[in-house]
């Protein structure tokens, strides 16, 4: 490790694409053969952030926000239009071998495993490509096997593996050279809940075991909430938030969600509803169970009042779901 400075540093980085545009229809298609109209798509616009070694950072944003473009710039696959980017002390776009030895990119929607051969053969190929000594390779593979349970699946042809098994092997193939920086682009996409938890847990343990830096994009908020103490939110190419997750929730939805289950008779329901509405915004109410949204400042007083006047059987206080927070955030920034 070179220094205690950031391992990833992005300053005013922009990435613009020139895209061909035409209307639907034959005439327009014929016209485009002669003369083409091009637009500039601003995928990423002057974003800046820095990530310290060993951090786990969630990279959030709706489809087309510029997340994958940013990851590809950081991995050296795309050249930024302007601004500066440094990863592990290297300029990624130069794609120096020493830089590529230190990073990995896992894309949930693309695979590097050889389709007709067992993953073990892809592992061997990567060992040769990354020039990993046999002893180190054996150790790493044993460690990955312990964390992911590969031995039962790595000798079956890839095409015969389930999506979850394939993703485990994809991760293993991407980590055999023990990279210091992991770019994970939707690694749990399409997986069932239990496999998502397995992979999430694996990423956390890999990060703790090897001190690797993780930058993760995912549409599953549970992934981000469980894995990433810090989130960076990007929308339409611009940076909207950089900080911890509770801070993001506080800034967008400064409320708590209170769920109450009430006892009592049906004739009490009208009175109960009045009391609930006095304390906060009533999101749902079926006569026995109510979901209330209460401002954080009024929470203590409001809950005490409800406990005093209503026959409360059960009560939970939670932050609003992350999905709703994100929806709010992106709706606010919509033009």
């Amino acid at each position: 490790m070179a220094s205690s400075g950031p391992i990833i540093s992005v300053e005013r980085m922009s990435k613009h694409y020139r895209v061909h545009q035409r209307s639907a229809g034959l005439l327009s298609a014929l016209g485009s053969l002669v003369s083409r109209r091009h637009d500039i798509k601003r995928a990423v616009e002057e974003i800046s952030f820095a990530i310290s070694p060993g951090e786990r950072v969630g990279f959030l944003g709706p489809n087309g926000a510029g997340k994958t473009t940013t990851l590809k710039v950081l991995a050296g696959l795309l050249h930024p239009t302007s601004g500066s980017v440094q990863v592990a002390g290297f300029v990624p776009q130069r794609r120096e071998a020493r830089f590529l030895q230190q990073i990995t990119l896992v894309m949930g929607q693309k695979q590097q495993l050889l389709w007709d051969l067992p993953p073990a053969d892809t592992f061997q190929l990567n060992r040769a490509v990354y020039d990993v000594p046999q002893a180190v390779f054996n150790d790493t593979l044993a460690e990955l096997d312990r964390l992911l349970g590969l031995s039962a699946i790595s000798r079956i042809p890839t095409r015969q593996l389930s999506l979850g098994e394939r993703m485990k092997c994809e991760l293993a193939a991407a980590l055999l050279h023990r990279p210091r920086v992991l770019f994970l682009d939707e690694p749990t996409i399409g997986l069932d809940v239990s496999m998502q938890v397995t992979l999430r847990e694996f990423v956390r343990r890999y990060n703790e075991r090897f001190g690797a830096t993780v930058l993760l994009t995912s549409h599953y908020m549970d992934d981000v909430a469980a894995l990433c103490p810090r989130v960076i939110v990007i929308d339409r190419g611009t940076l909207r938030y950089d900080g911890d997750l509770p801070g993001l929730v506080r800034s967008i939805r400064p409320h708590k969600r209170v769920t109450l289950r009430l006892g009592g008779t049906p004739c009490d329901q009208g009175r109960a509803e009045d009391q609930l509405r006095r304390v906060g915004e009533l999101l749902s109410w079926d006569g026995t169970q109510a979901v209330l949204q209460i401002g954080k400042d009024q929470l203590r007083e409001g809950v005490a009042h409800l406990l005093g006047v209503l026959p409360v059987l059960d009560l939970t206080v939670e932050d609003p779901p992350l999905e709703e927070v994100m929806r709010d955030l992106f709706e606010r920034s919509a033009p």
């Binding site: 050296g76 695979q111 490509v129």
Partner: peptide, 18 residues
């Protein structure tokens, strides 16, 4: 066509050779 050339470009060896 599919974009999996990304994986080749990420390898620390000459991409033309790979």
């Amino acid at each position: 066509r599919t974009g999996t050339l990304d994986f080749i470009l990420l390898k620390p060896a000459d991409a033309q050779f790979l």
